[in-house]
Each structure stands twice: as structure tokens, then as C-alpha cells.
Design a protein around this nucleic acid. Structure first.
Lengths: 341, 341
DNA sequence: AAAATTATTCAAAACGCTTCGGATATTTCA
DNA sequence: TGAAATATCCGAAGCGTTTTGAATAATTTT
């Protein structure tokens, strides 16, 4: 069923039917009703491609998520973020186009989808400290929102982020207050902004207490369970092991927990752990006393808000760049305690 | 840059330029080269919407992934599966349209995207034992491939799956051979096919050894870490706890491991654990001796193959329904051992 | 009651591509 | 050498919408 058929069936012109469906004022209320009913009855939906062609709007948002070809790791927070964003898009009649691509191909992918007129805007994932995609998208003139921030840039752009630095500064401070001095940081790839900022927060707290960081207690890699396990194992086997560990993801923290248990230590007693918790639906760190003390911030909520921000920018391109900080809570669980000895 | 501009710039008709780019034979090799070079230089890409409208092909595949509104859990295997499929689509010039939707809205979503002409086919995720979507898609006439199978159906349809039943039968048999009798099954939602089939495999092995199942050792829910933890904790606190546990996902297995450790048992000694391992990139169960004995099967590989299957069906709608069984390996790790006592 | 508004409808152009049916120039064949 | 075949190109129609510019009908104003 297309517009032509529908209008012939109604004995109206395509113009009128189209206008009735799109709530234009210049059509009488009675015919509008009649048209809408007939459309609903015939399950008519405008052909998206034809509509896009006519209006110039793709009604689609692109999410291109980078994967390092070496590791092939797909960050689980993407799924959670996308779950949030998808809801917003659906409500507003937009579709979500997903591309999972090797990081090195990203530029050509962006240029491609924009030349194809496939999207009205894109969401930028996993920003790096100095991310070339910012300039690229600005050059192309495609609206975008960054999930996170780019540290080294003086461009104006839309972003939504948590306060990584403050969160990790606070978490480190908590551990310091508990008497810990040897605090390890098991961090994500520090070429990425979020990890870099967390590192800064961590260092900020240490330095404020006149503690010099120990490079051997600071690591940076893809936040897998195995990574958390292996680095913790290594750190614990050194002559002066850490008494507390700060971990950048829940999944890595599970590996940390494994290593601690296996080494015969008790978590929260012998060794304290604080993790960041993105509130992934598969890992609810809940209960009366959560197992992990954590800095937590809902990635799904970020997805919802980021999508709204992007749609606003698309609706009103004249709008100034927006920024939004998402709330982060430091929640006490059973994985922290005073420094023993 | 559009076709008109490009052809004017070249002094050729739109027809010829279009044909040159699409490798039609009725254009001379020299002009084809000239056209292709100019197109590359001007970064010309056909407007996807216009092309779709003209050809009637959306060049897009839909993945709609259901979320139970109650739990809001997004299964992490989706991301992995999609990572595989996305690669195939890109290579073939297709895009991937993602919708995350409450399960109860799925029917209207399918009807919607098909009426909008948004996709050429869809991937069906998380099939249920008796899944109404099969009949729906058949009625609509949209090509689709199921990741998994529908147990109660005599329709012909395309699917790709692992042999859930055989895998869990084997895993159970291994535990039986190790002398275990009280074997627990921590399963996914058994309204879903995969979980149901695993249960059948588990029961098959038990019954073959003349063991009657104990309903208190069989649970079914969303496979979260917390679920694995809590049910294991409960089971271990009973008068006659299981000596072995079969878990349907790696993530739940992490919870199982936590509960076992916390109860003071040693995994692989006091209690054996076998988990299914989807080979999620964030949880590589590798090493010389993997931590978990597991039935493993690459979801990413399944995604690649499923996408290829779907594109084939779209290219040749006359093709008979295809089915494909993906390999599953039972790999020994350190989480299993002879039944103590 | 005629003129001026306003409300309602329509025909046709436009969006950017593919493709059908010719047209022209070149080659091949008898 | 003339006819037939082939190679190469082009104009225009069509895909299903939206939207411009006009036309007609109904209402209001003077």
C-alpha cells in the first residue's frame, strides 16, 4: 500500500492525503480523520526511502563503534549505551544504523555514510585524548555528540560525560582516608579520554597527600576480566603489594576479585577494591550492601540523554554546542575497609 | 556531489555514468575508467535513499533485539553476534539497522519496518520454544534468519545454531564420568529455545545413568552474575548440596565462582563447574589450562555466518531454507575434577 | 450582492538514482 | 560495398514521497 493507492482509494489527491497524515493545518478536520483511519486500517506507512529523498532527512542516526583490530574486543558498554539511545530514537521516529569497524577504517566510514546520505547525525564513541574524528566531523559538517570528552581540543562540540577525574579523585581519597598508601590503578587504555582523566583524578588525590605514584602499580589496557586477573596476580606477588586497588570497570574488577581470592586474601579486609560501575544490566552491583564499593554512573541513562541531545542539534542546527555532566555516585560496598597492619 | 553534477562535469549522460559505476557491460572500458576516477576524486557515493527508491532494495538488514520490560537486561551476546554480522554486511555494501525493543512491542515493530520499506531482511534473536515471530515474518514475507531454533514448529526457515542439547548432554556426561551424581543446572530462561534444549541434554544424560533429576537443583532465569551467585549460594546451603554445577553462561558462572569461593569451597576440587562459553571478547577463557571447563562456541562466528546466510536468501529468494550447525567444543579447564568423597 | 478572505483541495515539479527503449557510430559479414 | 550486427551512448520514465503554486469552494466583509 502506497500513497497513490491510498489516495485513490479515498478519492483524494496525494497532496491532501500526505498533508492530512503529517498534520498540516490546511486540511479539514473531517477528512484528516477519514484519511488517518484509512491509513491505520490499511497499515500504511510512508516508504522511508521515498520520504527521505523528498525531505532530505535520513531519519537515521549512525553509531560507529571502533574495534582495535589487534584485540577485537567489543566494549560491553556499547550495548548498554545503545539500549538507552535506541529508545529515544524510536520515540522520535528515528532509526539507528550501527557499524562496528576497525578503528583504522573509521575515517572512510564516516566519509562514506555522509556521502551516501545515510544519516542525519552520528554518535561518537570512545573518544581519545586527542581525537582526530572531531575535526573530521566538523569538516564534513555532520552533527554529532560525543559520549565522553576529548581532552586536547579547543573545538566546541556536544558531549555528555561523567566526571571521571572527580570520581577517581574521590575514590582514591576514600582509600587514603582508610589509611591505604599503596593504591594500585588498573585502568583502561590511557589513550582514551576516560581512562586518562581517571588517572589524573587518581594522581591528584595521591599528590595532595604527598604520595608519589609507583609506576608499577599503574596499568593500562583493554578492561577484560583476564586483564584484571593477571595484573592483580602480578602485583600481589611483588615484594610490597598494594593494599588497595582501583579498577576502571566492573568486568576487570571480577578478575581482580578472582586473583585476590586465589592468593588467599580477603577482599575488603586484606585488600580493598573500588571499581567503577557502569550499571550494566548483567552485573547489578546491588543488594543492601553491594559487593563492590564503586563509583557508579548509568551508561544507559547517558545513552538516553545523548540521543536527545543529538536530535535537538539536528532539529536546530543553529543551537550552540551543548554539554552535559551525568551524575556519578560513590557507593559503599563490602570491598573496602581500613588498611590492615 | 550527485550524479547529475558528476555527469555534467564529465560531459556524459547520467545513464552512462550510472552504468559505468555499476559495472554494466555496455560502456567502454576507457570511459568506465574515466568515470570511476572522477567519482573517486570527487568522493561521489550514490545517495542511498535515491538508490533504494529506484531499485526497491533497502540495502539494510534489521536486527531487532528483544528486552523483557521487567528485567531490562540486554544480553551481551548480542553485541558479539552483531560484531560478526556487521563485518559481513559492510563487505557486501549493506547497513545494519538496530532496534532494541520491549518484547511485547516486537510485532508492531516488524510490521512497521516492513511497511516503511526500511529493510530487506531481518535477523531473529532469542527464539522462544514456540515463537510467534516465525509465523509473523512468514506472513509478512520478509526474509529472515534465526539465531537459534524454534523447538515447536514445523515451518521451514533459515537458522544457524549450536547443538545445545548435545553440548549439555556431553558436559553432563563428563561430570557423571567423574563420579558426580548431584549435578545442578543453572540455566537461562527456559521459555527460550536454547535453554530448553540444554535442559533436555542435561536430562538425557542423567536419565541414561538412571538418575532422577532434582527440581531443586534446576533453575531458570536471566543469566546475570547475581543470579549465578545467589542460586549457587542457596544450593550450597541446602542439606545435600550439589557436587557439580552446569551453568549456561560465562557471566553467570562468574557468580557461581564467587559463591563457591565465599562458601569456602575450592572450585574444581570440592565442587566442579562447567559453563557454556560464548567466547565473548571480554571474557577470554584461555590460557594453557582455562579456568573453566566449558562447552564453547563462537557467537561472533555465528554472526558472520548468519549474515552470509541471510544475504544469500535475499539475493535468491527462491533458495530453499538453509540450516547450519556451528561447532561446539567441550574444553577441559581447571574447574572440574573427580567427585570428592 | 459583489468583493475580499479564508478554507480546502489539486496538479505537477522535485528529490537522485536506475533502467527501458532508442539512437548513433563503429565493426563485421556476405 | 551494402546490410547486419555490435558497441557505445543518450533521453526520458519511473520509484513514492513532499511541497510549491494555483484553483476552487465556502465564508466573511462591506
Amino acid at each position: 500500500m502506497n500513497l497513490k493507492e491510498l489516495s485513490e482509494h479515498l478519492g483524494l489527491s496525494q497532496t491532501t492525503v500526505s498533508r492530512a497524515l503529517n498534520d498540516y493545518p490546511e486540511v479539514s478536520e473531517s477528512t484528516r480523520q477519514r484519511v488517518k483511519q484509512a491509513a491505520a486500517k490499511g497499515n500504511y506507512r510512508p516508504n522511508m526511502r521515498a520520504m527521505s529523498l523528498a525531505t532530505g532527512k535520513a531519519m537515521t542516526i549512525g553509531h560507529v563503534i571502533p574495534v582495535e583490530s589487534s584485540s577485537d574486543v567489543v566494549n560491553p558498554i556499547f550495548a548498554e549505551f545503545v539500549a538507552g539511545a535506541s529508545r529515544t530514537y524510536s520515540q522520535r521516529g528515528y532509526e539507528l544504523m550501527l557499524t562496528i569497524a576497525e578503528a583504522k577504517n573509521e575515517e572512510s566510514i564516516y566519509r562514506g555514510i555522509v556521502a551516501k546520505r545515510a544519516v542525519d547525525g552520528v554518535m561518537l564513541h570512545s573518544p581519545k585524548r586527542d581525537d582526530p574524528r572531531l575535526a573530521l566531523l566538523d569538516e564534513i559538517g555532520l552533527p554529532f555528540v560525543v559520549h565522553g570528552r576529548v581532552c586536547d581540543s579547543n573545538q566546541q562540540y556536544n558531549w555528555i560525560d561523567m566526571d571521571n577525574q572527580a570520581a577517581f579523585q574521590q575514590a582514591t581519597q576514600l582509600l587514603l582516608d582508610l589509611g591505604h598508601h599503596r593504591i594500585a590503578l588498573i585502568n583502561g587504555q590511557e589513550t582514551l579520554s576516560f581512562a586518562w582523566l581517571r588517572r589524573l583524578g587518581y594522581l591528584e588525590a595521591l599528590h595532595a597527600s604527598n604520595i608519589t605514584e609507583d609506576p608499577e602499580l599503574m596499568t593500562s589496557a583493554d578492561l577484560t576480566e583476564t586483564y584484571g586477573y593477571q595484573t592483580t596476580q602480578k602485583m600481589l606477588s611483588r615484594k610490597s603489594p598494594p593494599t588497595a586497588i582501583l579498577v576502571s570497570s566492573y568486568i576487570a574488577a571480577l578478575g581482580v576479585r578472582r586473583a585476590i581470592g586465589q592468593a588467599g586474601y580477603r577482599i575488603g579486609k586484606d585488600i580493598s577494591v573500588i571499581t567503577h560501575d557502569d550499571e550494566l544490566s548483567y552485573f547489578d552491583n546491588g543488594g543492601a550492601v553491594p559487593q563492590f564499593t564503586s563509583t557508579r554512573s548509568s551508561v544507559r541513562e547517558a545513552g538516553i540523554r545523548a540521543a536527545e541531545m543529538l536530535l535537538q542539534q539536528i532539529d536546530k542546527p543553529s543551537l550552540a554546542a551543548q554539554t552535559q555532566m551525568v551524575e556519578t555516585k560513590l557507593t559503599l560496598g563490602s570491598s573496602t575497609g581500613p588498611c590492615p597492619g
